[in-house]
């Protein structure tokens, strides 16, 4: 359940950034989470509910954008979608993998109410 630590970290960052931008209430938070980031999506959703309960982010919508993996073969530079973090290149069959996408763990943006 490291997703709870991740959720708490998201909440901390969102609160800090919203304050720094003198923003009003945060209506949405957009997250990019890669399929190979080591995060269980369901667990993260649950953890965000727990981490925001009773806080000013309780009503905030967290949009979790799932980023599919893209790998490059280190040998023949073929781009493909790997099923696992370790695999063989479907083109040249060499082992090894360089992940270009799929390990994202990022807060992309916040949608906030304007403070009049």
């Amino acid at each position: 359940m490291h997703e709870l630590s991740i959720a708490i970290s998201i909440v901390d960052t969102v609160l800090k950034q919203a304050e720094a931008a003198s923003a009003g209430p945060v209506s949405e938070v957009n997250l990019d989470i890669g399929v190979f980031s080591g995060i269980e999506f369901e667990s993260l959703k649950f953890s965000l509910d727990v981490a925001t309960k009773g806080s000013i982010l309780e009503k905030t919508v967290f949009n979790i954008h799932r980023v599919e993996a893209v790998a490059e073969c280190p040998t023949c530079h073929h781009l493909y979608t790997p099923e696992r973090v370790f695999s063989h290149c479907p083109e040249c069959s060499q082992p090894g993998i360089r992940l270009i996408r799929g390990t994202e763990l990022q807060i992309k943006s916040l949608l906030v109410e304007q403070n009049e």
């Binding site: 991740i6 970290s9 998201i10 960052t13 950034q17 919203a18 931008a21 923003a23 209506s27 949405e28 957009n30 997250l31 949009n63 954008h65 763990l105 990022q106 807060i107 992309k108 943006s109 916040l110 949608l111 906030v112 109410e113 304007q114």
Partner: peptide, 19 residues
């Protein structure tokens, strides 16, 4: 998903690594 500002709302781009 929102990529634009709504009336009375503002998008703050962060791109901040959660870890």
């Amino acid at each position: 998903s929102h990529d634009h500002d709504h009336a009375g709302q503002r998008l703050i781009r962060l791109e901040e690594d959660i870890l």
